[in-house]
């Protein structure tokens, strides 16, 4: 089972390298990317400075695998990749990177939405929103 989790933020260098790796796959005509970024939310007059992610990693990796497989069945994709942060990610940093590629553009728009929505809803990942004074609240996906 592929491990989707990466320690800390997902860097723009990592994202750039992932794009570059696909240059040899010349049947691809369209990529689409979703990047989740940590927001500096205001909660009861306190500002979020980071989210610390934890997960039921074994189940989450199985779930990510299942979601990817379902996307391949549903859409005509050449490639699909998911990376999610584990541990602390500061505001403005990237915590989720979803990347799909296909011969033609139409499916990549639908596929990225399908993947991201299922990840948000089904992956057992938990996030602690940490404030400047080190107190915290637990985040819940809407």
């Amino acid at each position: 089972m592929k491990n989707v989790f990466r320690q800390g933020p997902i860097t723009s260098e990592f994202i750039g390298n992932s794009i570059q790796k696909h240059q040899s796959k010349t049947s691809i005509g369209a990529h689409n990317i979703f990047l989740g970024q940590v927001r500096a939310d205001q909660i009861e007059n306190k500002q979020v400075t980071a989210i610390e992610y934890s997960a039921y990693e074994e189940m989450a990796n199985k779930k990510f695998h299942e979601i990817r497989e379902a996307a391949f069945e549903k859409f005509e994709l050449t490639c699909s990749h998911i990376y999610h942060s584990i541990g602390k990610v500061g505001v403005g940093e990237i915590c989720l990177f979803v990347f799909v590629s296909a011969p033609h553009r139409k499916v990549v728009f639908d596929a990225i939405e399908y993947l991201v929505e299922r990840i948000k809803k089904e992956a057992p990942v938990f996030g602690k929103e940490i404030f400047e004074d080190q107190s915290h609240v637990w985040k819940v996906n809407k």
């Binding site: 989740g36 992610y53 997960a55 039921y56 074994e58 189940m59 989450a60 199985k62 999610h84 915590c95 989720l96 991201v116 990840i119 948000k120 809803k121 089904e122 992956a123 057992p124 990942v125 938990f126 996030g127 637990w138 985040k139 819940v140 996906n141």
Partner: peptide, 26 residues
Amino acid sequence: DQKLVNDHQIISKTSEIAILPPFAGG
């Protein structure tokens, strides 16, 4: 065993039970 279940599920000796709060991925 890494699958969400309802109240009627019967568990066996080998089961791994996980108590999961609301998800917050992405």
